[in-house]
Simulated scan of single mutants.
Amino acid sequence: MTSPTDTRPTHRLSEAGVSIWLDDLSRERLATGNLAALVAEKDVVGVTTNPTIFAAALGTGDAYASALAELAGTDVEAAVERITTDDVREAADVLRPVFDATHAVDGRVSIEVDPRLARDTERTVATAVRLWETVGRPNVMIKIPATLEGLPAITRTLAQGISVNVTLIFSIERYRAVLDAWLAGLEQAQANGHDLAGIGSVASFFVSRVDAAVDAALEKVGTEEALALRGKAAIANARLAYAAYRDVVGSERWAALQGAGAQPQRPLWASTGVKNPEYRDTLYVDELVVAGVVNTMPQATLDAFADHGIVLGDTVTGTADDAAEQIAAIEAQGISLADVTARLETEGVSKFEASWSQLLETTQAGLDAAAFQGGAA
């Protein structure tokens, strides 16, 4: 529990208006009470998941042994959906008090549609609806990737009153399209008679992967000027994204929806684990502090920030001009940020597809082993 004199970095971050979400979920974390402890002790108010997280969870330990035994003989696709939605439902129940206390803003748990559908609008919408209904909790969010095909899926899913976490956003141009898709979705939801107050949405803007890609390109250039720009692209890109967000929530279009009770689609800083060991391990938290955003952290980043994170007030507002100058300096080295972010989107979808395949393989192996043991018994 927090108190007025709480000086924990995570509490100070929360007081600065940043919602801390955990970028991880597993049955072991739920069964041991670890998630509940993180809510109580490290100010965690939400959870995000993705295929990589679930693949790692299913491939570690024996927490899913009883579930696999129960599902032995089940189609692997159905088994994966059952296991992941059960985990998300239980996590949503753990976070329900936060959801209620924050009036449907936090206390959210995200589950992603099958990444193999990232280029298929129709099936993405159908899967989003099924996941929403299967989990059956108002504080779940359905993750939809911000591919070109994902944009209309975002609008159509929101229009049905379903909360959406838009994922795999790398470029400012695509982010602006996401914001437009979100507004259109809320407008259609209102026309469809849905209560806008309960429809949550976040836009997951990826951070560290941008630095990893741009830094590699700067190192190929190899000049002193180029090398001095390493570690600058991701923060600058995110700060420009926040400026784009502020433009939209300052518009008359948003004002009309807000007047009808709608929540803003908060920027969510994703991929905040530092990939370069030369950088401060809390870099993508310390430098992106501003009220009204979410920072979703893997466990290692959360632990690091809880130990020695820095909160010196707002580090984002008013930084757009400097951020634009940094991006311009990087592009002056012959590096196209548009090309980098387009490649990162393609790679992101491919990585999640690979994780999904691994999840299916691990689950199938577990189902087979359970069936064999059941037969032997």
Rank of each mutant, 00 (worst) to 15 (best):
Ala56Arg: 14
Val80Phe: 01
Gly73Thr: 04
Leu288Pro: 02
Leu257Glu: 02
Ala216Cys: 04
Arg343Gln: 14
Gly374Gln: 12
Trp21Cys: 01
Ser171Asp: 11
Thr167Asn: 10
Leu268Thr: 03
Ala243Ser: 11
Asp86Tyr: 01
Thr341Trp: 10
Gln265Ser: 11
Thr301Ser: 11
Val249Gly: 00
Tyr245Asp: 13
Thr341Val: 10
Gly292His: 09
Ala306Arg: 04
Asp43Pro: 00
Glu347Ser: 14
Gly348Ile: 05
Trp356Pro: 01
Met297Glu: 13
Thr282Trp: 00
Leu25Ala: 09
Lys351Ser: 09
Ile111Glu: 00
Asp75Val: 04
Ile142Gly: 03
Glu77His: 13
Arg108Thr: 11
Leu367Ser: 11
Glu173Phe: 07
Ala304Cys: 05
Val340Ser: 00
Ile310Met: 04
Gly366His: 06
Val44Arg: 05
Tyr245Leu: 09
Ser350Ala: 15
Asp62Phe: 01
Glu287Lys: 08
Ala146Leu: 07
Asp75Ser: 05
Gln258Asp: 15
Glu219Phe: 12
Arg8Ile: 02
Ala244Val: 12
Gln160Lys: 15
Leu268His: 07
Ser171Ile: 07
Leu151Ile: 12
Val18Lys: 02
Asp195Lys: 14
Asp195Gln: 12
Thr10Ile: 08
Ser208Tyr: 09
Gln333Asp: 00
Ala181Met: 06
Thr282Asn: 08
Ala260Asp: 03
Asn34Ile: 02
Val80Cys: 12
Thr134His: 03
Asp339Arg: 14
Ala191Gly: 10
Val80Tyr: 00
Ser66Lys: 12
Leu148Cys: 01
Ala79Met: 08
His194Ile: 09
Val94Ser: 04
Ala104Ser: 13
Ser19Met: 12
